[in-house]
Design a protein around this nucleic acid. Structure first.
Lengths: 132, 132
DNA sequence: AAATTTAACTTGTTATTTGCAAGTTAAATT
DNA sequence: AATTTAACTTGCAAATAACAAGTTAAATTT
């Protein structure tokens, strides 16, 4: 999307302010998914053409990398760049907000607990565990 | 929007995962705007019918309140609920992320500085300053 | 008190984006 | 050689957003 203003929030939304991009980042971040088919099979069931387009723009925007698997040449491996991994705090805050206001949601309790005591360390830990 | 899954991130996006909602919250949060015309005149220039619809759903979702101004009856006053104010950390993380990766953006330096030293206090301060 | 302005919308209409179903291609497996 | 799998693409319908213009009720000006 074209830049709407000089506001950092607006600008961030120009990157990921659509219905799907942050869910792709979530899957790469928290569920260690890395292939097209894994991404397609998440609970929200994104349409294949939309997934394809989003992956393309996320790559163009430098949030993810795409490479071909060295053993299975059909397979493409998607991974987060540093820029992409650095969106983790945004997603974490969404988890925290939602688990406060919607108790029916599947929030990981251990994450919520650690968030309250040592947020910084939690973020580093979570980022460390992301597959490159 | 209808709930896509039980994921807290997906669910948060079902509230505010469109192009405009978070910008409305931003204006109410950081710029102390409270009227329709003020919201309409932000840099991104949202179309009036879209603004109208978004305000309606944000109110239905319990993120904002709408009341009639006591002196000028034409005027509607929009304000954030606690639930809405609690989205501030999400927006703050967007400011932090974007100012790290796009130096051409108008990020408030004092906020970025305070974020690094005392995030907690900064959030409370910013929330305290929001007009009810 | 009538005419004008203002705030907050609504109503068409067009353009863009999303969603669904089916089809394609190249590589791997049977 | 035939089938399956992974990662897409294509075409079309439905939903959403964008643009321009019009409406309504209250306030202000003349």
């Amino acid at each position: 999307m074209t830049r709407r203003s000089d506001c950092p929030i607006s600008n961030t939304l120009d990157y990921v302010g659509d219905k799907w991009s942050l869910l792709i980042l979530r899957d790469l971040m928290f569920f260690n998914k890395n292939s097209y088919s894994e991404l397609q099979n998440s609970d929200e069931r994104m349409a294949t053409n939309i997934l394809s387009k989003r992956l393309e723009t996320l790559e163009l925007d430098g949030l993810i990398n795409k490479r071909t698997d060295s053993v299975d040449k059909r397979k493409k491996v998607y991974s987060l760049t540093k820029k992409g991994k650095d969106m983790l705090p945004i997603l974490l805050e969404m988890v925290v907000w939602c688990s406060k206001y919607d108790k029916t949601v599947d929030a990981p309790k251990e994450v919520i607990r650690r968030y309250k005591t040592d947020r910084e360390a939690l973020i580093k830990d979570l980022q460390k565990n992301i597959k490159s």
